[in-house]
């Protein structure tokens, strides 16, 4: 019983290792990766540089992960960067994908934070 459990664990661990080695490295970076607004719900602005690199020359595109809006494509390149004017009330994820196969290669996110949250949600404390 215990051996079975041990093998099960080992198999799961080696499986995740295998998955990690076969998973493409996340070669898309966003700098900065956080935008801080003063108040919750307010538009947040940041000048973000999205950079990517790949081991092989290819045709790649960068898009908004939610809306699938294609922001820019590169032909026969293995690296590139885009200056993106972040202007949103919520976090945005970006995807780098191979335009020949449509396979997503890397993902990155610009997270949105704020200082003053809606008071009842975070900053108010109820005694009774």
């Amino acid at each position: 019983m215990y051996f079975r459990f041990f093998y099960c664990l080992l198999f799961t661990y080696s499986g995740s290792l295998l998955a990690a080695t076969t998973q493409p490295p996340s070669d898309l970076t966003a700098v900065p990766d956080t935008c801080v607004a003063l108040r919750e719900g307010r538009q947040c602005y940041a000048d973000v540089v999205l950079s990517w690199q790949q081991p092989e020359v290819g045709n790649y595109c960068l898009r908004d992960a939610t809306s699938k809006y294609i922001m820019q494509c590169w032909l026969k390149q293995r690296q590139g960067s885009l200056n993106y004017a972040f202007d949103s009330t919520q976090s945005i994820s970006f995807e780098l994908f191979d335009s020949n196969t449509s396979q997503v290669i890397a993902v990155s996110e610009v997270k949105l934070q704020w200082v003053y949250q809606n008071r009842q949600k975070k900053r108010r404390w109820r005694l009774f």
Binding site: R123, R124, L127, F128
Partner: peptide, 14 residues
């Protein structure tokens, strides 16, 4: 105008 604490029942602080 924006510093209005949202109506709540009971004790609240900030």
């Amino acid at each position: 105008a924006d510093n209005t604490l949202e109506p709540t029942t009971g004790f609240a602080w900030d």
